[in-house]
Nucleic acid binder design. Structure first.
Length: 108
DNA sequence: TAAATGACTAACA
DNA sequence: GTGTTAGCCATTT
């Protein structure tokens, strides 16, 4: 387990800071916590917290990543649309408008 | 201890 | 535009 304060804790903490109506990419979060993008995806898969807006985390293509098994992919899209994020006909988010710009001054 | 896993990304064909 | 290859690194078995 991730005893106490682990890398994942930082990832979850960062994800919680994503404002409503915005999205962040795995690579972006990975860079901020100083790890590889796969760890971010793995952290989401583990998700010990149920109060993390994991649905605001998408891949670099602006699309919801297909996960193993279930169809949470659909749920993620619904949650984002409920927050005001729009999807193109191809099922992609306009990152130029909805990509979260992390406020570094508040992360120090 | 070593090998396998994975909700990714960038580069190349 | 899509498909494949390689790199990535903490967690799990």
């Amino acid at each position: 387990m991730a005893g106490g304060n682990s890398l994942y804790e930082r990832i979850y903490n960062l994800v919680r800071q994503i404002p409503k109506g915005k999205v962040a990419t795995y690579g972006q979060i990975a860079m901020l916590v100083g790890t590889g993008p796969r760890q971010v995806g793995y952290a989401m898969a583990a998700l010990p917290h149920d109060d993390v807006p994991w649905h605001r985390v998408i891949n670099s293509k602006g699309m919801v990543s297909p996960r193993t098994g279930g169809d949470g992919e659909i749920i993620q899209r619904v949650l984002l649309e409920a927050e005001g994020v729009t999807f193109s006909l191809s099922g992609k988010v306009n990152l130029r408008e909805f990509l979260w710009e992390p406020d570094l001054t508040s992360l120090v």
